[in-house]
């Protein structure tokens, strides 16, 4: 892959990919590391000549695999026990929404992000996460239910 082609791909995909990883992992340092690892694996795979439209889901798939590896190694266990949001909130803005979202399980955060921020279909989410379409449907339903409970609780606090 030439530098110019990489630059076009990076400009189009780096930001959404970083936001996705940061949101799901809950950590900016992890997002920095995994972002570089995603592009490294893409270049190493020999598929780097693919179009941006095809490379984007492929990069999300690599990111999902890397995040899954972290969960398997127990990297998220510490995160779930935290009291404070892992993503550094802006000091002048509220932290309640950040905290609320981070109280969801990583899998739920991942599915909600792909469904509502990336606006992927169930089939596309299945391709990215390696789950089957039926599992995506069920897990997304549960994630929505959890999010609704948290949003309702937050609404009642006000």
């Amino acid at each position: 892959m030439e530098e110019q082609a990489f630059s076009a791909l990076y400009e189009a995909t780096a930001k959404p990919l970083w936001r996705y990883i940061a949101h799901v992992s809950g950590r900016q340092d992890v997002a920095d590391d995994l972002l570089q690892e995603c592009y490294f694996r893409l270049l190493r795979s020999g598929r780097s000549e693919m179009k941006i439209a095809d490379a984007r889901p492929y990069l999300f798939r690599i990111a999902a695999n890397l995040l899954h590896d972290r969960w398997r190694r127990g990297g998220e266990l510490a995160l779930e026990k935290r009291d404070e949001p892992a993503i550094e909130p802006h000091p002048e803005k509220g932290v309640d929404t950040t905290r609320m979202l981070q109280s969801l399980k990583p899998r739920a955060r991942q599915l909600l992000w792909l469904a509502y921020m990336e606006e992927m279909t169930h089939r596309e989410i299945a391709a990215v996460t390696g789950l089957n379409v039926m599992s995506v449907r069920i897990l997304l339903l549960r994630a929505r239910r959890e999010a609704r409970a948290l949003l309702t609780a937050k609404g009642e606090e006000r």
């Binding site: 936001r19 940061a22 949101h23 802006h90 803005k93 929404t97 609320m100 509502y116 949003l151």
Partner: peptide, 18 residues
């Protein structure tokens, strides 16, 4: 509601340079 909550959390996160 979910999209808005995620966007709100995004806006609340400290800026980060890639």
């Amino acid at each position: 509601q979910i999209r808005r909550a995620i966007l709100h959390a995004e806006a609340a996160a400290a800026p980060h340079d890639l």
